[in-house]
Each structure stands twice: as C-alpha cells, then as structure tokens.
C-alpha cells in the first residue's frame, strides 16, 4: 500500500489534526510563562478537583439509591461530603470566574474558552438545582413547589416537570452531569490548546 493511500485515510488525517492541535507538550506542559505566578491560577484546578469529588461522592450515593442517606449514618455522611464538595465546587468556580474576568482571559482567540466556561457554570447550576429537588425531604418538596412557577412561566415547565422526582433524578444523575463534565473537558482542552492568556500588551510596551 502506498504512503499516499495511508495519507488520505480518515484515521490518519484525524490523528495528524489532533497531534497538530494538541501535541503532548501542550497537553501536559512542564513550564508556564513566567507571568503565571499568582494564587488565582490554582482556582481552576481547585474547581476541577472539587468536580471530581462531587462526582465521586455522587457515585457512592448512587450505589445505594436515592433514599439510603435518610436511614443510614454512613449514607448521611456521604451525603454531607456530596453537599460540601458542591459548596467548594461553586466557591472555587466563582473565584476562578472573577479571576479570569479581571485578566480578560478571552483575549487572543480564547473567546471559546470563556464561553465554554460560562456554559459550564450554567450547566452546574442546573445540576445542583435538580440535586436539591431530588433530596426526597422537606427541602426538595419546598424548592420544587417554589421553582415550578418560574420554570412554568417560561413554558419549559411543560416538559421539565420539577415535581416529578423520577425525571429530576434522571436529569441530576445522568443528563446534566454528563453535560457538565463534557463541557469541563472541552474547556480544559481549549485552555491547554491556547495556553494561558498573556498580560495586557500595552502595559508591556509602556
């Protein structure tokens, strides 16, 4: 088989495109530009780690089902770790967002990185909300009956019934986490592909 045939293969083309866009030294760099020297840079990775802990604690809750944590002290503790990892997740993500805003981190062809981050934030709020209404306790009853009016007023409530525990639980443990995690993955790949945004150039010249 000739090289030309191999060159034309879809597989070969895809591999070369991926290699070109994300060579290993970009995917896992061992240095950063010397301006990357602030605690603000650790909040992206803190958010990632918190997301991993949210997912892990959620998987443990999934092992025994949605009402286990009401009847078991172990289950209740796992639920506590799920709640507090969510609090830390949002805590880190908001600081990360503020930091990236004040760095204008969308500059230099990085706007898609900003957009995926913003959409991830929204997906996370949706995931957290469906979790709150899936708690099967007084809190979830109240939040569901309150939230229905807002969601119904947009027309979305006709299809997204916050009073239907089964539907909310499915969104909470499959659809929305998949979306949030996939978006996070895309966001991280874009960060690695474009690199960390440089400081404002006019100031360098000044």
């Amino acid at each position: 088989m000739s090289n030309a045939t191999i060159d034309r293969q879809w597989t070969t083309r895809l591999r070369r495109r991926v290699e070109g866009a994300l060579p290993p030294e970009k995917l896992l760099p061992d240095t950063q530009p010397s301006y990357v020297a602030s605690w603000i840079y650790v909040f992206g990775v803190a958010t990632l780690v918190a997301l991993a802990l949210v997912t892990l604690s959620g998987l443990v809750l999934a092992l025994k089902g949605p009402t286990w944590w009401h009847v078991s002290n172990v289950g209740h503790f796992v639920n506590s770790t799920h709640l507090w990892s969510v609090e830390l997740f949002f805590f880190s993500m908001v600081i990360h967002l503020w930091g990236k805003f004040f760095m204008a981190a969308w500059r230099g062809n990085r706007s898609l990185t900003w957009i995926t981050g913003g959409v991830t934030f929204m997906a996370s709020i949706g995931t957290a909300f469906t979790g709150y209404v899936s708690q099967t306790n007084f809190d979830s009853q109240w939040i569901a009956t309150q939230a229905k009016d807002g969601i119904n007023s947009t027309g979305i409530g006709a299809y997204f019934n916050v009073l239907d525990l089964g539907q909310m639980l499915m969104w909470h443990i499959t659809l929305l986490p998949l979306a949030a995690i996939a978006l996070t993955g895309l966001h991280v790949i874009l960060v690695r592909k474009r690199g960390v945004v440089p400081p404002f150039a006019d100031e360098v010249a000044a």
């Binding site: 602030s38 605690w39 603000i40 909040f43 805590f91 908001v94 600081i95 503020w98 930091g99």
Partner: peptide, 10 residues
Amino acid sequence: LMVATFVAVL
C-alpha cells in the same frame, strides 16, 4: 469568604 479569598489571592 468567597470575596475575602478572592482579595487574599490577589
């Protein structure tokens, strides 16, 4: 705490 952490981080 969020605001305080952000300021401290800066």
